[in-house]
């Protein structure tokens, strides 16, 4: 075998490791990365097909562009929150490989945010002056556009060379993801006609994720992970209920006390209740492990070694 022929598989593998969404760094097929890639594409693919009329003329309702605009914005926020969930999830599961999909998820969120803006531009007949004057005049648009610009800066510095060149500054710059999430959620809430239940739910999830970045939250070596998860879920739910109350008390004519009281009706599916459930469920993972270790102490001890 000539040296050139031997080098070829290596070069191929390196390229796959650097560029392929379904390979890991070492150029091996990665079901995790492949699965996340499929998850990232699925809503966009569905939306593109729906816009093209593949599912009938009314698949996206009477205003398809408007609906697609709404949905891409929602997916941008969902993927952004998912990217912020990876660190706490890694600490819960101990599954270090989750770090391999963080960039992909972050870039997915940006792609949806960019598509969201693109659809808005289409709706405004692609008239630059009109788009600019709307952004300047409407607070929620100014906030959304600021978030998009910051997000573009993160996407543009998401390549290996940029990461190497920026060094320690890269981490500092990419903390902007938290600010982008706050701006994105504010943009979402401010465009609502009245009821902010949906943005409040996403805000609650964001609050839970941020609580895990404080001394109260999960971290390697900290005791009682399930209590920390549960505690963060309760705090995040309380913050959700309070924010929703404060929002209506100051910004809308809805009776804020009644909305606060509605949280007690669990079946009503108010955002605080949903946040409590969604943020508490991961506590089952360490809890399950603890129960398993009580049942089979020897094996677990052996694994730990």
């Amino acid at each position: 075998m000539t040296p050139a022929a031997a080098a070829r598989p290596d070069a191929w593998r390196r390229m796959a490791g650097d560029w392929s969404p379904w390979h890991d760094r070492g150029g091996r097929l990665s079901p995790l990365r492949g699965g996340v890639f499929a998850l990232a594409l699925a809503p966009g693919l569905w939306l593109a097909l729906a816009l093209a009329g593949a599912f009938g003329p009314l698949a996206l309702g009477a205003e398809p562009i408007h609906e697609a605009e709404h949905l891409t914005g929602l997916w941008a926020l969902r993927f952004l929150l998912l990217s912020l969930a990876l660190t706490p999830l890694r600490r819960i599961t101990g599954w270090g490989r989750l770090a391999q999909v963080r960039r992909m998820i972050g870039l997915t969120a940006f792609a949806y945010a960019a598509a969201h803006f693109g659809l808005y531009a289409v709706e405004q007949q692609l008239q630059p002056l009109r788009i600019a004057s709307e952004i300047v005049q409407r607070l929620y648009l100014a906030i959304g556009f600021t978030a998009l610009l910051a997000f573009a800066a993160l996407a543009a510095t998401s390549f290996d060379r940029a990461i190497r060149r920026l060094g320690a500054n890269w981490r500092r710059l990419h903390r902007l993801a938290y600010a982008i999430a706050v701006l994105g959620l504010a943009h979402y809430a401010l465009q609502e006609k009245l009821d902010v239940a949906e943005p409040a739910f996403l805000f609650g999830l964001f609050a839970a994720l941020m609580l895990h970045r404080t001394p109260l939250g999960l971290a390697p070596g900290r005791a009682f992970p399930e209590a920390r998860i549960l505690g963060a879920a309760i705090l995040a739910a309380a913050l959700t209920a309070f924010s929703e109350y404060a929002w209506h008390a100051t910004l809308t004519g809805l009776p804020a006390e009644r909305i606060l009281a509605a949280n007690l009706d669990l079946a009503a599916g108010r955002p605080a209740v949903l946040v409590l459930a969604a943020a508490a469920i991961p506590a089952l993972i360490p809890l399950g492990r603890r129960l398993l270790s009580l049942a089979r102490p020897r094996e677990i001890a052996h694994e730990a070694r």
Partner: peptide
């Protein structure tokens, strides 16, 4: 204008036009 959007145009349902 509405506080959150211009009322200068309208999206005509079912046409994709403004």
């Amino acid at each position: 204008s509405h506080p959150r959007w211009s009322q200068a145009q309208e999206r005509v349902l079912g046409t994709g036009d403004e």
